[in-house]
Amino acid sequence: LLQYRLLRRRGLHEEGFSDSLLSEKIFFYFPDSEIYAFFCKKPEEGKPIEVRVGNEWKILERVPSIRIDSTSKYLQDYMFSPLGLQNEPFDIDFYPSPKADPAKKITLMQDSVGMKDFFVREIQGEWMKIQECIDYGPLYAEDAIVDEEGWEKISKLSEKNPIYWIRWRKGDKILTPQTEFYFKYGC
């Protein structure tokens, strides 16, 4: 997975890649910070990078603002926070294991505050292993900001919480909207 900052300033915006077009065709797009995340083929030393935009592969030259991570590593920098009304079931299906029998589906409810969060623990193809996060409100209040060290502490304290699997994509279609992820270290 490739994360590309300041793409607009590199001239691609003028060549027809408008924000509204990209936001539907790439993995993540954060207009406020001008960050774009694309799926890419495993890069080869000295060769341009091939990125997926919609159903097409495009060539992107290497520049310092490009960072390439595995999908799993990239997503583990984010919290999964599914949208849902307070005390109502989520629209997403949770399972005890990847590729589980649909009859074993687990229905989870949004909490009374409407802020249930999950750590992304692992990616296995189209499946994402997530673990329910503790209520970190009291820790957050102590520090006023949760930095990387704080998230490590919260992650460790969450290790006893339930683990679930969700299907986060189906082929090229992302099933978990970008709006349900937020970057941990920027909170």
Rank of each mutant, 00 (worst) to 15 (best):
V146I: 15
Y164G: 01
P89R: 10
N161I: 01
E152R: 10
L157Q: 13
E88H: 12
D143C: 11
D135Q: 15
Q178M: 12
E159T: 07
Y164L: 09
P96C: 09
S155I: 09
K116I: 08
Y74D: 05
V113Q: 15
W165N: 00
T107Y: 11
W151I: 02
D101H: 01
K104H: 00
P82H: 02
Q131L: 12
R62S: 09
L139S: 04
S97Q: 14
I123F: 02
P102S: 01
G84T: 03
L108C: 05
E56K: 15
F119K: 01
S72Q: 10
R169V: 10
E152I: 02
I145T: 11
K160N: 14
E88I: 08
L60H: 05
I154Y: 03
S112V: 09
D69G: 00
K104C: 00
D91H: 10
L60I: 13
E159K: 12
K58C: 02
I59F: 09
Q124K: 15
Q124I: 02
I154G: 03
V63H: 12
I145K: 14
D93E: 08
F90I: 12
K99S: 12
Y164I: 10
D77A: 11
E180R: 05
P102G: 00
L60M: 12
K170C: 05
R169N: 13
M109S: 12
E88L: 09
D172H: 07
W168D: 04
E148P: 03
E152L: 09
Q178Y: 02
M115I: 04
K160L: 15
P98R: 15
D135I: 06
E61C: 01
R167W: 07
K99E: 06
Y74L: 15
E122F: 00
S97V: 02
A144Y: 06
L83G: 10
K173D: 08
K73M: 06
E126C: 07
K129T: 01
E142F: 07
D91F: 06
G84W: 02
L139T: 04
P102T: 06
Q124G: 03
M79K: 09
K170V: 03
Y74R: 12
Y95S: 03
G84L: 12
K58Q: 05
A100H: 00
W168V: 02
R67A: 06
Y140T: 05
E132G: 04
F94C: 01
Y78R: 13
D77C: 14
G84R: 10
P89E: 07
E126P: 05
S97I: 04
W57S: 05
I145S: 10
S72I: 01
M115Q: 11
C133P: 05
D91C: 13
Q131G: 01
A103L: 10
L157H: 07
D143M: 15
D172I: 09
Y95W: 03
R167G: 03
I130A: 03
K105G: 00
W168L: 08
I106V: 11
K153L: 08
W151E: 02
W127M: 08
P177N: 06
E180H: 04
E126I: 01
S112P: 10
W57N: 07
T179A: 14
A100R: 00
D143A: 15
I59R: 14
P162A: 13
L75C: 05
L83E: 15
E152D: 13
E122R: 13
I59P: 03
L85A: 09
